[in-house]
Structure formats: structure tokens, C-alpha cells
Amino acid sequence: MSSVEHKVEMFKLAQERRRQGKPSWEYTVRGFKDILSSDDDLIEKRDQLVALLHASVWFKRTEDASLSETLDELADVGHPDIDWDDDYSAERHFNDCLEQIYDLADWDRAWLA
């Protein structure tokens, strides 16, 4: 969930881009919401999102290693070869990764469509 401070900062970024004559979003990643709303299971969604984001212009142009690290983390969600704790929840892990991706997308002005 976004904090009020985060929302204010994102509004300022969008306003600054508009003042410069640019659209408020620099990138658009099409298909993101379609994957999330599909009937596919969590692991299929995970794999589709990782592939989609790796192929995106946003990923290819970002200089921040955080997106790559977050996608690596997303790729690990529910992986059977990882010795997870007994209270591990793949769904919670998946949602935590999505939250990080949404925050990074906000900062980089990437619209996840």
C-alpha cells in the first residue's frame, strides 16, 4: 500500500514531467494486468510476469539494479528447490514482490497496463 508521502512524491514527478512537455509516464508495460487477472495459477503468473518485465523497454533502460533484483526474487516465488520455512506462503511472497515492482514502476514512471 502506498503511503501519503509516496503518493505526493509520485504526483510531483508526474507534474515535473508534464512541465517538461513529457507524458506523466515514460514507459508502458502492456499485458501486466492481463496476467494478474488471468485464471492461471500463481507459478504461471510468476513466470509470465518475469518474462514480460524482462522484455520491457523499462527493464532494458533502467540503470537501477533494484528492478533486476526484484525480478530475481519474483522468479524464486514458490520455487520447489528452495528450502522455505514452514510458515512460507508463496502467495504472500508473490504479493510482496508485486508491491516492490509497483513502487519501482512509480519512481521510474512505468505504467503497468
Rank of each mutant, 00 (worst) to 15 (best):
M1N: 12
S2C: 02
S3M: 00
V4Q: 13
V4I: 15
E5C: 00
H6Q: 14
K7M: 14
E9D: 13
E9F: 11
M10I: 14
M10H: 08
M10D: 05
K12H: 07
K12Q: 12
K12R: 06
L13W: 09
A14K: 12
A14G: 00
A14R: 15
R17C: 01
R17I: 12
R17Y: 08
R19K: 15
R19V: 07
Q20V: 06
G21A: 05
K22V: 00
K22D: 11
P23R: 03
P23S: 10
S24T: 10
W25F: 08
E26W: 04
E26L: 11
E26M: 05
Y27D: 01
T28M: 10
V29T: 06
R30C: 05
G31P: 03
F32S: 02
F32T: 01
F32C: 00
D34K: 14
L36E: 01
S38P: 02
D39C: 02
D39G: 09
D39Q: 10
D39T: 13
L42G: 01
E44M: 14
K45R: 15
R46P: 03
R46M: 04
D47W: 00
D47S: 03
D47E: 13
Q48S: 14
Q48Y: 07
V50W: 03
V50P: 02
V50N: 02
A51I: 01
A51M: 06
A51S: 08
L52P: 03
L53R: 03
H54F: 14
H54S: 05
A55Y: 02
A55D: 10
V57R: 15
V57S: 15
V57Q: 14
V57E: 15
F59A: 11
F59N: 13
R61E: 10
T62P: 01
E63D: 06
E63C: 09
D64M: 03
A65R: 05
S66F: 13
S66D: 12
S66L: 14
L67K: 06
L67D: 01
L67W: 03
S68H: 11
S68G: 15
T70A: 01
T70Q: 03
L71K: 09
D72I: 09
E73Q: 13
E73K: 10
L74D: 05
A75V: 08
A75G: 06
D76R: 13
D76G: 04
G78H: 00
P80K: 07
D81C: 04
D81R: 13
I82H: 08
I82C: 04
D83L: 08
W84V: 03
W84D: 12
W84M: 02
D87I: 08
Y88T: 11
A90E: 07
A90V: 04
E91N: 07
E91V: 03
E91I: 13
E91K: 14
E91A: 06
R92I: 08
R92E: 11
H93C: 05
N95F: 08
N95K: 15
D96V: 03
D96P: 00
C97Y: 02
L98Y: 06
L98I: 11
L98T: 06
L98K: 00
L98H: 02
E99V: 10
E99W: 08
I101T: 06
I101G: 00
I101N: 00
D103H: 12
L104H: 10
A105K: 06
A105P: 04
W107Q: 13
W107T: 14
W107I: 15
D108G: 04
D108S: 09
A110K: 09
A110R: 06
W111S: 07
W111K: 15
A113H: 11
A113V: 09
